[in-house]
Amino acid sequence: MTIVVGYVPKPEGRAALVAALEEADLRGEPLHVLNTSKGDAYSDPGYATEEDIAEVEALLEESGVPYELEHRLGDRAGGAADILEAVERLSASLVVIGIRRRTPTGKLLFGSDAQTVLLQAPCQVLAVKA
């Protein structure tokens, strides 16, 4: 069994990563860190840079938890679909996501990846507040 965590280089993403590490340590399960981008814009603040990835790797190495890091361009459906796909593929026991406050209009226009994962994940979901 694996724990999947959706990482973004933002406070909520880092909070999710830290919580996921604790959980993985506790359960003795490996961690699968996922960061993807739709890649349809010039810049995507949610897509980790080389520096972000180095930082994440350092954190993971230090914890000693066995891990995998998946950093790639996802399909055109976007973040939530990539997370759900990874959960399915790895038959994960738990998925960890970071959440933040959103306005209703923002959610209507851009959707909410967190909400999609919460409602559609076939396993437990741990939602961490930044």
């Binding site: 080389e50 998946e70 950093h71």
Partner: peptide, 13 residues
């Protein structure tokens, strides 16, 4: 000089 990032199973870009 840049080494592709990515973990063991990950496809590095």
């Amino acid at each position: 000089r840049l080494v592709p990032t990515g973990g063991t199973s990950a496809e590095g870009p």
